[in-house]
Design a protein around this nucleic acid. Sequence first.
DNA 1: CATCAGGGCCCTG
DNA 2: CAGGGCCCTGAT
Length: 346
Amino acid sequence: MTSLTFAQDDGGAAHRPLESLAAEHSFRLDAGEIIPSAPFNFDATLHKPDHFPSADNAWEPGARWQTMRWQGLPLGLKFEDAGSVDAPRVRLSIWSAELFSQGFLDGLLGEIGYRYSFSLDLTDFNRRFATYPQLGPVLARWRGMRPLNYSSLYEYLMIAIVLQNATVRRSVQMMRALDERFGTPVSYDGKELYVSWAPGDILGASEEELRGLKVGYRAKSIVRVTEAFVSGQVDERVLRNRSREEQREALLSLYGVGPASVEYILADVFHHYDAMTHISPWEQKIYSKLFFDRGPDDPAPVADLLAYFDTQFAPYQMLAVHYFWEDLFWRRKHEAVPWLEALIRL
DNA sequence: CATCAGGGCCCTG
DNA sequence: CAGGGCCCTGAT
């Protein structure tokens, strides 16, 4: 267990010179406050109740702990709500076992800004749908919420792979086994978490070894996707500057990555909200109930659902559906939603 | 105890 | 373009 713990908390100003924060083997940097574009809903953005729990993060109202590997260095991040929806401020602290340069920090903050969509402009979306029959009330509840990816594209793909054809419990087991074998355990701020492995950390593992971690046939996908990243065939930074359809094509070319995974990635990782082209069977049942009050034995055809979303919510189909989806899972967190329980195999 | 399907995807015909 | 097979696991 690598300890990133550093007790001192001097409440320093933003971008304090790192030299003054150096500790023996680790330090905590007060990286100051991030000012997201308003409106910004801290908890609905920094926590997604529909995500399966994983060891790279922890959350409580007003705070998210998130591990991250940046330029090979394991980091512990802590985001704290220091504002309001209309006057948002997010306090960021960074734990590290090594000193890093101002240039490293600048790059890191830029990356975090992208991943967390801190500057997303929601004004047009909000204006269009504030008084909309179904979406209006949901939007009011979660105003300022963003879809996002807390980690890297590679890490997201690993999550997508362990999700496939598995129950939630099994996905959790697979990810934990992979983290324990290939990830970096860290402790900071009282949390014990894992920093997810980098492609190079798992490259030497054979398919047989991975199968030993009970990931089954997904072992092949993990190996092939990892190779694509190590070889440079896929480069997240490069892909960010490509068009949506080029991104889709590049992702689909990866072994073990199909339309369901890509649909999530285009929205969460690359921030495209204007196209929905695929609905998986379990989502179809949930949407059928939500939008047409139709049960799982008589779900609305996927084509009808897609057409409905296009008609109602373009050019923000993915954004609008994200709001409904998160609203549903937040509700489930606080009260029983019997029809939903029947559709979720834990 | 045996069978089955699960928060997909690949491959075949 | 439809459908069988795939690892493993808990539910039935």
